[in-house]
């Protein structure tokens, strides 16, 4: 977690700006005029109940889903307007940690980490690739798993390897989709600490989707509460916990 001072200093540098985002599936309105901004070096947690549209939001941000209306500007570029190549260029600056980790089962840990590198940076040499893979695994403390298959790793290790894969391209923004889901309390805490450590080391901005209150408390500079498709509250964890609003209190009880 970055200090308040750091966030204040870089307050003008908005890396992500979401305006009036709407997304529906048939008659189900998932996101209704949703707004959010993310400042360089900041960590924002989007908090909401299961099925509230958090994952839809993050998939719209990375361009996996196309919003019905509204804009998602990342580094000044509106994601829904970009063509495939332009979108790939923006995606190269964004890391995405999937809820299910999404490690490729048929590839070793090394190949999993090499995959995005080879795809985005075609001209990079094998020596450089090896060094980057080893460094990324070193960052998550799993250098020894380099030649293992994902199936041989525990849940927490898989999450760390997935995090290493998001780090390999040195992203400026990291999107976390429920990073602690399915993990025990101790492993969850380790993953959250690792996320904070990575953010401080690389000065990345983080957009974290979660309903884990430990994650919200430890990793957030700011919390955005998503309720019925809209942004219900947008404040720090410390302020929200003092709120008397019953809908907000419900999350902190």
């Amino acid at each position: 977690m970055t200090s308040d001072k750091q966030v204040l200093n870089s307050s003008l540098d908005k890396v992500m700006l979401i305006n009036n985002l709407c997304k529906s599936f048939g008659d189900r309105h998932i996101l209704i005029n949703f707004n959010l901004e993310l400042i360089r070096g900041e960590s924002v947690v989007v908090l909401g109940k299961s099925g509230s549209g958090k994952s839809v939001l993050i998939k719209c941000v990375i361009g996996l889903l196309r919003p019905d209306k509204g804009s998602i500007k990342i580094f000044g570029k509106n994601i829904p307007d970009l063509n495939h190549d332009e979108l790939d260029q923006v995606r190269a600056k964004i890391g995405f940690l999937f809820q299910s980790n999404a490690l490729y089962d048929s590839m070793t840990v090394r190949e999993n980490l090499e995959f995005p590198l080879r795809r985005h940076w075609i001209e990079v040499s094998q020596e450089e690739v090896d060094k980057m893979v080893e460094d990324a695994l070193e960052d998550v403390g799993l250098r020894h798993t380099i030649d293992m298959m994902p199936v041989e790793l525990s849940g927490g290790m898989r999450k760390r390897v997935a995090l290493a894969r998001t780090l390999i391209l040195k992203p400026e923004i990291i999107l976390y989709d429920e990073p602690t889901t399915g993990l025990d309390t101790i492993t969850s805490k380790e993953i959250i600490e690792l996320m904070i450590e990575i953010q401080e080391k690389y000065n990345t901005s983080s957009l974290i989707i979660s309903h884990d209150m430990n994650c919200v408390r430890m990793a957030s500079d700011r919390v955005v509460m998503l309720m019925d498709g809209r942004c219900y509250a947008n404040d720090t964890y410390e302020n929200l916990i003092k709120s008397e609003d019953p809908k907000i209190k419900m999350f902190f009880e």
Binding site: R91, N101, P116
Partner: peptide, 21 residues
């Protein structure tokens, strides 16, 4: 089975995010 399992475990999405069609 392979593609189905890749789909439900978001591996296909991960591939797209990694700059691959």
């Amino acid at each position: 089975a392979e593609l189905g399992s890749m789909k439900v475990t978001e591996q296909i999405d991960a591939m797209e995010v990694s700059g691959t069609n």
